[in-house]
Amino acid sequence: MSQTQGGNSKAWWLLSPGVGLYILTFFIPLAMLLVLSFAKFENSVTTIGFFFDNYVKIMTDGITLTIFYRTVQLALMITVSCLVLGYPVAVLMRRSGPRARLWLLFFIVSPLLTSIIVRNVAWVLILGRSGIINDTLIDWGWISTPLPLMYNTFGVVLAVVHVYLSFMVLPLFGALIAIDSSIEEAASSLGASPLRVFLTVTLPLSLPGVTAGCTLVFILSMGIYLTPVIMGGNFVLTLPMLITDSVRNLYNWPVASAMALMLLAAIGAMVLLSARVQKMVGG
């Protein structure tokens, strides 16, 4: 705020309760995970020190790395699906009149505040072995055995897209609404077809929103635990599941910490990449 340009540095004391909380629940815990990731875990005993055993283990045991790639792959599939479903909606939101836009915005924003587990339950009731789709198709005699609609990648991607689609549409809409429509009108008055206007003007100008939305959805998808467990059962394994299992069932904190840092590294890499792309597309 301009009035407080000089500002009173005493005001920063107001941050202390929040910062105090974060120190206990955020900074110290993260530091602990970092230290633990270099600890040694042998015969259920954790020895603090500076060992690379956990990192070597997750890189060479063949399983962790495979599941890590699988997690990245899944996150990419979710991101692309959100983009494909979300972009047209964002375009329509920009073109609509005030009332229609408000309704569209309502349908896009309200899922953000709807319980994730409730939405997963809804998908189980639809896609499950005796869910609506399988029940109906069997009733009609179209199939005799239930279709595998969940406990596979398809079910996981569908349910996660349902959860994260809003996070894609909002940045897309933000970028699209910021485009000055007179640029498009200029292009079309010079004889460009609507498709050409879209491909050469609208789409390139919306790329900052595409980058922001994709980054957000990718990061969120990398870390999601609940939906893949419910929709994938034990058939779709992801890094967050491995982390949870290592701690809750194997009590192997050092390996779980190393995996958590691996996840953070992947997310950090994505953020850096996204910043680069943003620079290129002029966001």
Binding site: M1, T4, Q5, G6, G7, N8, S9, A11, W12, W13, L14, L15, G18, V19, Y22, T25, F26, L30, L33, I219, L220, M222, G223, I224, Y225, P240, I243, T244, A260, L263, L264, I267
Partner: peptide
């Protein structure tokens, strides 16, 4: 505090105050 404090350092303190948002909840 962020609104009334000095301009210098406000950005970084704001980043600190919202930092838990960027961390995956699993971590």
């Amino acid at each position: 505090g962020l609104d009334r404090g000095p301009m210098r350092g406000r950005q970084s303190l704001y980043a600190v105050m919202i930092s838990p948002m960027v961390l995956p909840h699993i971590v």
